[in-house]
Simulated scan of single mutants.
Amino acid sequence: MSAEQMTHAILELPWTTPPLTLNDSGQTRGARLARSRRIREIRSDVVVLATKARLPKGVRYATITLHYRPALNRRRDSVNLSPTLKAVVDGLTPQKIVKTKAGYNVHAGYGLVNDDSTREVSTPEPIIHETEPGKPGALWLEITWED
């Protein structure tokens, strides 16, 4: 693949800490509902950001890397960011309407890729950067795709 066929974008995310982590227990019904609500919010936020960034739709293949620069200097586990990465990637796939017992749920989606399978998306392990004194935490996506 030549460099001319690859395109690149940085999408700054609105959070200073990861909105979801593997440490979120989700043991109670209320915690599970709150987590589901947060996932919906993340997907919706990503759709708005991708629209503003004018990302393409229906690309053949994309690599989506989550970056995190924490505000506080302490040990961190990059795999712990997986739930945030999953919700973000889901927000970059097409909108889905899912039938439930109570009716229908609409899952927000942008449509950068047609599916989040490994045939269309690569999600390398999230990258945790060093803190920068005086700067708040930050999360962003580095996205490359094939036209």
Rank of each mutant, 00 (worst) to 15 (best):
V121T: 11
S82T: 14
E146Q: 12
E132W: 01
I127R: 05
S122Y: 07
R29S: 12
G137D: 10
I39T: 11
I128V: 14
V79R: 14
Y68R: 02
E125W: 00
L112C: 11
S117F: 01
D45T: 14
A138T: 04
E142R: 11
S78H: 09
I128L: 03
G26V: 09
V47N: 02
P133Q: 11
T63I: 13
G91N: 08
S117Q: 07
L55W: 06
L66P: 02
R54C: 11
S117V: 03
L85P: 02
N105I: 10
E130C: 01
T16A: 12
R43G: 03
G111I: 13
D90R: 03
L22F: 05
V89W: 06
L20M: 06
K96Q: 15
A9S: 13
R40S: 15
V47H: 06
E142A: 07
R32A: 05
A53G: 03
S36V: 02
P136R: 12
T123K: 12
E146N: 06
T21L: 10
L81C: 08
H129Q: 11
L49R: 15
S2M: 09
G30W: 08
L81N: 05
G137K: 09
E132V: 15
A50G: 07
S36M: 10
V79T: 13
A53S: 15
E12R: 13
L20D: 00
P126C: 05
K135T: 01
E146A: 05
E142F: 00
D90F: 01
S82D: 11
A71V: 02
N105A: 07
D90E: 12
H8R: 14
R75W: 04
L55P: 10
L92E: 03
P56F: 10
V121L: 10
L22N: 14
P126D: 08
V79M: 08
V59H: 08
R32I: 07
P70W: 07
T7D: 07
S82W: 12
V121Q: 08
L33S: 11
Q95R: 15
A62R: 04
L11F: 05
K96A: 14
W140M: 04
N73Q: 13
D77N: 15
